[in-house]
Design a protein around this nucleic acid. Structure first.
Length: 489
DNA sequence: GCATGATCATGC
DNA sequence: GCATGATCATGC
């Protein structure tokens, strides 16, 4: 910014930070922006002036609150202890607001944070109370058109703070173990540590207990957590069913330990015994998942804490031979989207990088019929597997699509493809996912080459049939290797 | 028994 | 009607 000549041409008014020494003053100022567009607020035409960089956040700081942009370790309004944050929402499929992205907070100085406690941490010092200015992001429109839809002060509910403390402890534990370079957003539930900086390679930073340089990271409130606080705290939607009904339960155990212990209480029970215990008389395909939620005290299929953390619950069934029968599937990918992505911003890579899973593990008795609960385990993919094997499979799949190398053969009514196979890689592979329509399959000549041709980015083959959807899978043998020792005996 | 492709069941 | 998570079916 300092080498940008036109930046200096903006003439700022006198600072008026002293107007905002109370939370009430900060909030009422924020509220005046609701219903206005960014263009209407942008007094200094920051977003209209050629060569001046900046986003909606800069307009809010300069034009609404009237102070200069800084990157101070103090909160933006130190007297009131309030940090100003501008963040976007988008509408989901049901037209309900969700967070456009994670909310990035202050950059983590690994060399300093290593010595902090939660109370003395830079996160807690700067971000204890947030003034959230929320705009609606409109696709394909200039950001000057974005309307401000809400303004609210936010401080963490006590039950969230237990989880956030544990998250903070996990992040700092990696710094203290000399593994700052292996930090991942999937390590934690609400508070994350996201990469920050133009390119990962250019923003490498020193860490205190290892010579390996680590990517620069900032604390963040993870996207799902932002969505939840926007819906409940800002737009006052109803809260969901909670697993932890009394926060005292979290004084001696972390949230994850608590969940695992609840599941462990039913360890060894058969599915039939659990059905009887929870009064389940039907046999739906998601029976084991449903029973797990009942054990956690949830009547439906959504738990507030897991939703807030974006935790993905996966049921795993170990066969009588001690092996997992099925591979683990993920949402189908879009061919065009995949072809146009890079690994760093890939849908699948980001999903695995950011997501924490809860495995609910069941095992068959030696009769091969009786299924018993073994317990639960939280998991996210280790850094080296993600950036090694998964990346390789992803790169190869993308190359096949992008370079038009996908071929299919019809053998006895089934389609054989040349995507990476389970035998090609110890961690991941690609297989069909979802409905296949094989009406014209038998008309295809051997080795038919398939290319992206349709406007919606799906593959099209001759005779105008859509090529079946595919997705990335994690190999069953890999998942087994990731399970706690207690499940593999 | 395993690898690979195909399909089912549910919920939105 | 389709996406998603889960599971089935077949051939080697």
């Amino acid at each position: 910014m300092s080498d940008n000549g036109s930046y200096k041409k903006i003439v700022y008014p006198e600072q008026k930070e002293n107007l905002f020494v109370t939370k009430e003053a900060i909030l009422s100022c924020g509220r005046t922006a609701i219903g206005k567009t960014v263009k209407e607020l942008d007094k200094y035409r920051r977003l209209a002036t050629d060569g001046i960089k900046g986003g909606v956040g800069h307009v809010i700081e300069e034009s609404l609150y009237g102070y200069h942009i800084n990157s101070d370790s103090e909160p933006d309004f130190p007297e009131a202890g309030v940090e100003l944050k501008t963040t976007g929402v988008v509408r989901d499929r049901n037209n309900i607001y969700k967070a456009k992205e994670r909310l990035a907070l202050n950059i983590i100085n690994y060399m300093k944070e290593v010595d902090a406690t939660f109370e003395t941490s830079s996160f807690w010092h700067k971000n204890r109370t947030l003034m959230l200015i929320i705009y609606e992001y409109l696709k394909n429109r200039p950001n000057t058109d974005f309307p401000i839809v809400a303004a609210e002060l936010f401080s963490y509910p006590v039950e969230d703070l237990y989880i956030i403390r544990d998250d903070w402890a996990k992040i700092v534990a990696k710094i203290r173990a000399g593994k700052a370079h292996e930090i991942s957003e999937g390590d934690t539930l609400y508070l994350g540590a996201c990469t920050k900086g133009a390119t990962a390679e250019k923003s490498l930073r020193q860490q205190p207990l290892s010579d390996i340089k680590a990517k620069q990271r900032a604390y963040c409130l993870k996207q799902q957590y932002m969505t939840y606080i926007i819906r409940t705290h800002v737009f006052h939607e109803k809260l969901g069913e909670r697993i932890v009904s009394d926060v005292k339960s979290l004084q001696k155990k972390t949230f994850e330990q608590y969940v695992v212990s609840r599941l462990d209480a039913y360890k060894g029970k058969t599915v039939d015994e659990l059905k009887a215990e929870f009064g389940v008389t039907t046999k739906p395909k998601n029976l084991e998942s449903l029973l797990s939620f009942r054990i956690l005290g949830i009547k439906g299929n959504k738990a507030e804490e897991l939703e807030k953390a974006g935790v993905v619950v996966k049921t795993i069934r170990i066969g009588k031979n001690g092996k997992i029968k099925e591979n683990m599937s993920f949402p189908a990918f879009r061919y065009r989207e995949l072809a146009d992505e890079t690994w760093e911003d890939s849908t699948f890579g980001e999903y695995l990088r950011d997501t924490r899973f809860l495995f609910i593990v069941y095992k068959y008795d030696s009769d091969g019929k009786t299924l018993r609960l073994l317990g639960g385990q939280f998991w996210n993919i280790p850094y080296s597997d993600l950036e090694g094997n998964v990346k390789e499979v992803w790169e190869e799949t993308r190359a096949i699509i992008k370079e038009g190398r996908l071929t299919v053969n019809i053998v006895k009514g089934t389609l054989q493809n040349n995507f990476p196979k389970q035998t090609d890689n110890p961690v991941s592979h690609v297989r069909p996912h979802g409905q296949t329509r094989l009406g014209s399959v038998n008309l295809l000549p051997e080795g038919t080459r398939v290319n992206i041709e349709s406007s919606d980015g799906s593959f099209v083959w001759p005779y105008e049939d859509k090529f079946p959807n595919h997705c990335f899978w994690l190999n069953n043998s890999y998942i087994l290797s990731q399970l706690d020792e207690r499940f593999r005996r």
